[in-house]
Design a binder for these strands. Structure first.
Lengths: 164, 164
DNA sequence: TCGAGATTGTTTGGATACGAACAATATAAA
DNA sequence: TTTATATTGTTCGTATCCAAACAATCTCGA
């Protein structure tokens, strides 16, 4: 535990501090635990999987999306990675400097930039992603086998509700 | 939908692209949807609740933690907000410039810095947080009533496993 | 053909983000 | 008391991160 307050302590304190307001505490618990979990898992991955390769979280996500959709259009990468196109410009420059990806102009549409992985980038993902997945298994392990599908579905539903 | 690929499309493509590897796709689906949902919800809150007040997401979280634990020690704020102490230093300076919080040295331990909300900060949270909670309700609405407790519990379990 | 409007990636400016080094303070043992 | 060790918040350097302005390119109607 990083802080000095447990999750239970915090939620109890919150309920007490805000008892005079008309609030939906269950919705608050879901939202708050969503961010806590995402943040904890991300930090865990950064420390245990990404730190050796010198990749930031976002750089890894961009690399992963490119790996899946290669050759990938930058507008799609930004959308899939959940970052702005301005941010992507900088991250792609970093990845190019590391010689993991290559940018190229589309011949069909001069506005578009296509991104592909270098051989070095492919090799990295080929070893990095299985290691990443092993940590995913570790992280999800406290959720019972037969409830993981439900969990993914509920998270999908929340995303769809917002982006839908 | 922001991007041109739906969630289903992406997951199908991923399964196909990685079919030759021995991977736990269910764990991957949970982890990937966790980040997607957290990112979507955060962006939604930033646009629909925070943008008017000029607060960044992190600034809001710091303000919220301070509101709950006031007077709050910076080491606790950083842990609760899930950011480094270096980042917190900058965010607190921003919040002080906005006259929403005040820093003060602890008289019991000269190393500690205590943070309290100004009247302006209290007033802001008094109106901002209920609005925030209304959006939380909206965001969680696609999850059936009787499953929200389960969802929060599973997310809590994941966090506890990592920080445990 | 041509020009107004839309789309795309980059640049700009300012805030956030972290690790590492740092100075100040506290705690422990001798 | 003194010395070594630990803890805390800040500073520094560098890498994200975004909105808004921008230049290049495309589209489509006149």
């Amino acid at each position: 535990m990083t802080g000095s307050h447990t999750l239970g302590e915090t939620e109890a304190r919150v309920a007490n501090r805000l008892s005079h307001m008309k609030l939906d505490f269950e919705a608050m618990a879901v939202s708050s635990n969503l961010f806590r979990a995402a943040s904890a898992v991300r930090n865990h991955f950064e420390r245990n999987v990404l730190s050796d390769s010198g990749l930031s979280w976002t750089a890894f996500v961009v690399l992963w999306v490119t790996w899946i959709w290669e050759p990938a259009e930058t507008r799609d990468i930004a959308a899939e990675a959940g970052i702005s196109k301005a941010t992507l410009t900088g991250v792609l420059s970093t990845l190019e400097k590391m010689e993991l990806v290559v940018r190229s102009r589309s011949t069909e549409d001069g506005r578009l930039v296509l991104v592909t992985l270098t051989k070095k980038g492919q090799n990295l993902m080929e070893t990095l992603f299985p290691a990443f997945n092993r940590q995913e298994v570790e992280v999800v392990s406290p959720v019972p086998d037969n409830k993981r599908g439900d969990l993914a579905d509920m998270l999908r539903a929340i995303t769809a509700k917002i982006e839908g």
